[in-house]
Simulated assay, not measured.
Amino acid sequence: MWGDFFDVNTLTYKIYSSTAALPDNWNDLAVDNIFLSKEYLKVLEQSGPENMTCHFIGFFKGEQLVGIALSQFLDVNQLKSFGERDRCVKTSVRNFIFKNFSSHVLFMGNNMLTGQNAFHFLEEINPKDALKSLKKASDTLQLIFKKKGKKVHLTSFKDFTKEEISAFENVGFKDHYKFCIQPNMVFEIKENWNSFDDYIADLSKKYRDQYKRSRKKAEGIEKRKMNLEDIIKYEATIYDLYFHVAKNAPFNTFFLAKNHFRVFKEMLKDKFLFYGYFIDDTLIGFNTLIKNGDSMDTYFLGYDESIQREKMLYLNMLYDMVAYSINKGFKEVVFARTALEIKSSIGAKPVEMYGYIKHSNSLINKRMDVIFDYLEPKTEWQERNPFK
């Protein structure tokens, strides 16, 4: 743990490298976001990606803890692959930029999730004071890594909605590039949907037929809710299924540890749901869900690609996630990024996400508008409306 550091607004902060050192009342500030809780931070600590280093930041007014935050440092040089799906000139340029000019990235936030999972402050704290202190903490973190011989090339504050990002104006981010990235796909659950059948009844004929076709294709697949012992038993297969999907993504900055799902279940218990899909007792796919207050957050999944295509497994997983969330009374399902069009086809809507990024090299930083176009893969897609 590093000692007190003062900013100009009388807020102090402490940077912790271990969850064991966190203040006893840390979770009092994480009640609205499980991804800032001690339990989740322990998951990162015990089973985070090999190329990731996490720090936890406590903000104080006097002796009172008034804010909490997460940072993640990624060394992308440790990756063997950034993703194998897209092979083109632009992808080669992007990989070259990352390897040679941007291999050390400091995220003030969570690069493994989509949405504002970076920090939380008490309402009594002025938002501008909070953000100034957060930026000061990022400067201190850069010094910490520099002393360890790891210069931070890129510093990024992510992911924020249009309303949330407006608070960053006039608080010291003028030399940062403001970016807009792929949207967060959020499925809003209507108040009149008391069951999954109500959702199906609201679909237009075209998308009701899509639902029926996908369910028919999935005949022969058994879905099982898996407990900790099951996850441990199938751990090797689970990782193979996950890694197959992950390595074929358009872009990766990390890969999960092999024990990640086991540790997740150990730490979050019934708030972490793991569902396996089986054919004749062979695990051919899985998905995961995290209960986060009134929201259901989807997490990582995996599948056998050949079976996925034949059985429309991914689409069936999306329907299953929606069904559970409606039936259990959640208000929304956060589907995050990727596969935007198919998520749209079941009713998820895009929410634009913004952030700020800065390169340590002033010359490169001046051209971040050009460079960012290479760092963030673009996806062309068409939004769907499946309802009547």
Rank of each mutant, 00 (worst) to 15 (best):
F251T: 04
D75R: 06
N33A: 04
T282G: 06
L203R: 11
K128Q: 14
S166R: 09
S47Y: 05
D24Q: 11
E383D: 07
Q72S: 14
T114A: 13
F330C: 07
S360N: 15
F98A: 01
K158M: 12
P386Y: 03
W381L: 02
I371W: 02
L79V: 10
Q182S: 15
E191R: 14
Y177W: 09
A69V: 05
E305V: 02
G329T: 09
F101H: 12
R215C: 11
F157V: 01
S360P: 03
F187N: 04
E63G: 03
A249C: 06
F56L: 08
K128M: 04
I364D: 01
K147W: 07
E124F: 03
I200S: 00
Q116P: 09
M312H: 08
F264T: 02
L134H: 05
L340W: 00
T91W: 10
L289P: 01
F272D: 04
R224E: 01
Y275R: 13
L44I: 10
D32A: 12
I238S: 03
S17E: 13
K206A: 13
L74E: 08
W2I: 15
W2E: 15
E39L: 06
T91I: 10
K216C: 09
V31N: 07
S295D: 09
S306A: 04
I290N: 07
L203P: 08
K136C: 14
G83Y: 08
V322P: 03
Y40S: 03
V263C: 01
D270W: 06
S17K: 12
K14E: 14
T12E: 13
S204D: 14
H176E: 05
F335H: 00
S360M: 05
D32Y: 09
V66T: 08
K80E: 15
V245E: 09
T288D: 02
F145C: 03
L74V: 11
Q64K: 15
R309F: 04
E235M: 05
M52W: 02
A118S: 15
G220C: 03
S102Y: 11
S138I: 00
Y277D: 10
I97Q: 01
E45D: 11
Q116Y: 08
